[in-house]
Nucleic acid binder design. Structure first.
Length: 668
DNA sequence: TGGACGGCGCATCGAA
DNA sequence: TTCGATGCGCC
DNA sequence: GTCCA
């Protein structure tokens, strides 16, 4: 069983110098056996920042280069990190039953996971004699938006340092729910809930389900896709070396190029981040001319006997709503299974897939092809991007009530005055973060200035108040955003010409039943199993490899956001989205746009704003005012541009504390 | 004390 | 048959 | 579980 700690360690491999490799191997071993003994001393000398004088906590925030260096040297506390990560993993499967509801400890699990991840990336060992100091440094560097650990986190670190264990984690690990989860975790589609059901029914492993007939599996609640995945639980749901991933991708690339000349095929996920192994193959498809339904046709082709790459389908892309050459909306093909209860890989493309394949294969722009954005629109987008100053937004100024420097979020555009009694439905979070510029600044201050709430109050108070905070006087102007339509996704507007074909959103997935509302391009997602014959010259004992494979396509105008989202890692994405949220933006794999409050948008519309054309990853970073990070730099979730602001903010906070109340340092 | 904690799509199931 | 809730998946 | 309003 590959533990979370081991896979984390694997993640760092590409950056290790030979000298560090041994250190990491030793730590990996230490992490596996839950011992911290072998790692601690090495980290202290190997870690460059440790040698720097550290006059104030904030000044140890690493530069990007240092961050990479820190990451490469892994954790100074591998045992602790492993323990916390295991606890998080275990809690994933633990049911919680309160009087109000039954569910799993998702947030608890997430809290452990997030904490463990930060620990795993922190090079300095925690030791009893300087624990408080180390924890403060750790908190400032890895949780810059708050700057302090929670009391529980401090407790757990202390517990581990003194006892070598975290009792809470052990408890969760030992629970039956967690054990059940562990037993079935390699089966696609069996999560915490079904794992517990199966365990209760007496099953103890995935292989014990293999012999069951389909009907029995169904009655046990094992979904059809899980049943199909069962056979591959061992081989497909483990990690694979890059070379194997590349072989699979080569086949996909070859077939995709035959089918859609000019197509761009990117291997995403951990592969793209440079890891030495990957859990699955992530294929991202983009076409400058924007074919609507790349995935079904490609999957169809890859599944043919003569290609034989795809042997099993787990999740299929549904039909997409498109406009054809005559401007008529129609469903464009997805895939569906054939044979009602078949557990075999019988399937068929919904008929249109064949015609699409044919027309595309002939090199003609068939009805499935769109040309969005137009060259002109693309140029506009590029031009607008070029006009955006590359200077990051002055977060400190924003935090302390100065000018908001975010190039796309000027106050006049975002927050025109509006009668305070205008009807509106907004969550408290939306109200606090987005509605009122002053509140927004306070929210940013809360992210930046941490360690005590007093600082946040001080920063918020520093901004001139013009209205009661309970009746926000401003809102996002939809009109203002519409006026920038040259840079926004064009499908929403009927001004596109002639033969263009818009792949519009499944708006019922987005927000409501009206699928005809033009909106966003609907990405297509496919999950399946790829079979790769043993390499030529391999010993006959070596059978074929089975790998999990995902194939996804987006509209060209979504290329940037899609690349960022499916390069990851997970925590980096969440940090980025959180950051975008604070700036009043919405970020996902399919769109980046201004957030609009519920009451300000038509019923059923989730965002009600024009997503920007984001064809390059750099656009995402630039529009957020962040420095571009290469894929391999996206493991950690420091937001670099926050660092200088943080250092200054820490200075300010320190000053204000010295002048004001003697607030205790919450990081200790 | 109540809401948020990432954002999205597909499969399944049961209620309407 | 449709629709919402739930479970699970992806990064 | 934790944070915030």
């Amino acid at each position: 069983m590959v533990t979370r700690a081991a896979s984390l360690i694997d993640s760092f491999h590409p950056w290790l110098s030979p000298a560090d490799a041994d250190l990491v191997a030793a730590r990996a071993h230490a992490a596996e056996i839950g011992s911290e003994a072998s790692g601690a001393s090495g980290a202290a000398e190997a870690q460059p920042a440790a040698k720097r004088p550290r006059p104030a906590a904030a000044s140890v925030l690493p530069t990007p280069a240092q961050t990479r260096s820190l990451v490469a040297r892994l954790s100074g506390n591998p045992g602790l990190a492993g323990e916390v990560l295991r606890a998080g993993e275990a809690y994933q499967g633990v049911k919680v039953a309160t009087s109000a509801r039954v569910g799993t400890h998702v947030f608890k699990s997430d809290a452990f996971d997030s904490f463990g991840f930060r620990l795993a990336l922190w090079p300095r060992p925690f030791r009893g004699d300087s624990l408080a100091d180390e924890l403060r440094t750790f908190a400032w560097a890895t949780r810059p938006w708050h700057g302090a650990l929670t009391a529980r986190q401090r407790e757990r670190v202390t517990e581990f340092v003194t006892t070598g264990r975290i009792a809470r984690g052990d408890l969760a690990q030992a629970s039956q729910d967690a054990t059940a989860r562990l037993a079935f975790r390699d089966v696609h589609g069996i999560g915490p809930s079904r794992a517990v059901e199966l365990w209760t029914a007496g099953f103890r492993s995935a292989s014990s389900l293999l012999a069951l007939p389909p009907a029995s599996l169904r009655s046990l609640g094992v979904a059809a896709d899980s049943a199909r995945a069962l056979r591959f639980a061992k081989s497909a749901f483990s990690r694979h070396p890059r070379a194997l991933i590349e072989r699979v991708a080569a086949t996909v690339r070859e077939q995709a190029a035959l089918l859609f000349p000019g197509i761009e095929v990117v291997i995403g996920g951990s592969f793209r981040r440079g890891q030495s192994t990957a859990g699955d193959v992530d294929i991202l498809l983009f076409h400058r001319d924007g074919p609507c339904a790349l995935v079904p046709a490609l999957v169809a082709r890859l599944s043919r006997p003569e290609c034989g790459l795809l042997t099993e389908h787990l999740k299929l892309p549904g039909p997409v709503l498109c406009m054809d050459a005559h401007g008529e909306e129609r469903e464009f093909p997805g895939l569906r299974y054939a044979g009602p209860d078949s557990l075999r890989s019988e399937w068929e493309a919904i008929p249109d897939a064949e015609s699409a394949e044919t027309s595309a294969g002939e090199g003609r722009a068939g009805p499935s092809l769109v040309r969005l954005p137009s060259d002109e629109q693309q140029r506009d987008a590029e031009a607008e991007l070029a006009n955006v100053p590359s200077r990051p937004p002055d977060l400190l100024a924003m935090a302390t009530g100065g000018t908001a420097a975010s190039p796309l979020l000027s106050e006049g555009e975002l927050c025109p005055a509006v009668p305070p009694d205008s009807p509106r439905v907004a969550s408290p979070r939306e109200t606090a973060r987005v509605l009122d510029p002053l509140k927004r600044q306070a929210a940013i201050a809360a992210l930046l200035l941490a360690p005590s709430s007093g600082n946040v109050c001080a920063a918020a108070a520093a901004a001139p108040r013009t209205s009661s905070s309970s009746s926000p006087s401003t809102r996002i102007s939809k009109q203002a955003s519409l006026s920038r339509s040259s840079s926004t996704f064009p499908a929403r507007h009927p001004h596109r010409q002639g033969s263009s074909c818009a792949n519009v959103a499944s708006t019922d997935a987005l927000n409501g039943p009206d699928r005809s509302t033009p909106g966003f391009h609907e990405p297509q997602l496919y999950c399946g199993i790829a079979r790769l014959p043993a390499a030529a010259g391999a010993p006959p004992s070596e059978g074929p490899s089975y790998l999990r494979i995902d194939i996804k396509s987006w509209h060209w105008s979504q290329r940037g956001t899609a690349l960022v989202a499916f390069t990851g890692n997970n925590r980096f994405n969440r940090a980025l989205r959180r950051y975008a949220d604070v700036l009043g933006l919405h970020l996902s794999d399919r769109a980046m746009c201004n957030r609009v409050l519920q009451g300000e948008r038509p019923a059923g519309d989730r965002w009600n704003d024009e997503p920007r054309v984001v064809t390059e990853e750099a656009h995402v970073f630039k529009e957020l005012g962040l420095e571009f990070r290469q894929p391999h730099e996206r493991l950690v979730f420091f937001v670099d541009q926050m660092h200088s602001a943080l250092e200054e903010a820490a200075g300010l906070a320190k000053d204000s504390r010295q002048g004001g109340s003697a607030s205790s340092n919450s990081a200790t």
